[in-house]
Design a binder for these strands. Sequence first.
DNA 1: CATTTAAGTCCATATTATGAACTCAGGCTT
DNA 2: AAGCCTGAGTTCATAATATGGACTTAAATG
Lengths: 173, 173
Amino acid sequence: MTEAPVIRRSPVKPSDCNLARSFELIGDRWMLLILRSAMYGVRRFDDFQAELDVPRSVLSARLAGLVDAGIMEKREYREEGQRSRVEYPLTKMGRQLGLPFFAMTEWGDRWLGEGEPHFGLRSRANGQKLRVALVDERGKPVKPEDIQYVVDQRVWPQEMPDQRADKARRKSG
Amino acid sequence: MTEAPVIRRSPVKPSDCNLARSFELIGDRWMLLILRSAMYGVRRFDDFQAELDVPRSVLSARLAGLVDAGIMEKREYREEGQRSRVEYPLTKMGRQLGLPFFAMTEWGDRWLGEGEPHFGLRSRANGQKLRVALVDERGKPVKPEDIQYVVDQRVWPQEMPDQRADKARRKSG
DNA sequence: CATTTAAGTCCATATTATGAACTCAGGCTT
DNA sequence: AAGCCTGAGTTCATAATATGGACTTAAATG
């Protein structure tokens, strides 16, 4: 392995970086936890509050931020013979956080989990477990050593830090 | 589409959820931004500080937290004829955040980006752009409508909120 | 009409962040 | 040898947020 050069600045300024923008938008403990619950279908103020034990004032502010960002929607609805209530469903923008969140779940399963994870995805077609992978334009998974970083059409010195699916060396081991 | 039932609790308690654990560990604006820079190879205290303009005291605390979590390592190193310095390289645990971060980047490109994104991944083998996808055990991408949630070996009512690769309806449009 | 439920707001206290200045050690310069 | 520079922090006063509990409002229910 060659000596890694010292890199003093990232090639993408935080202010032009969509990852940094995402983190500035939703990189907050409560927002992320609210969104996790929302992914499972939780939609009501008091349900978020009870599940997460988040202070009501904070929840109120975070939901407003999420609505503001377009990730959630605030909607009145009325169940059969009930009075009208407020709900906060995810918008499409919010629902599409599913993939990053699932990738993060896999990371947590590997590095923070103890025992079998409670949650996973499965193919309805063949019952197989699903995982997140990098695929090319034809949907073909790429070998980790074939992954290149590209910044403004140019290959960036480093490779993808680590995608080796090295044989589950679990924390517990 | 059937009426979505009201879901009052997520099927995985936050305290048993590896996603929630991940968020509790690194779900913090500065940590995430530090990790973003670290993914590009930034490793030194002053470089993080200058790039992110994070208060030095906060940076100090966050780096300690990341080291503590096992995501970064604190190491002395000495360049040719220089005095010894401190660096904070990612551990394998840290490098493996690459995939969730890239998934998040794609989300940001779609929903927060203006114009062409600055960063992407490419296959060295055939030059094709790479993207994040859900694949089955054989590496075959699954159709969005075939995705099932599984909680403790049981199928959970809802589907994956949204994986439809619906024709790029960009914010800018 | 009193209660209950849902969805908040208000407010005093506690915690954390911010920004600027300061420290400390080693190597470099003159 | 004395002073200067750099990297990696620490310290501290002030500012901003979070926390937790009580309170509010509105509609439905007994």
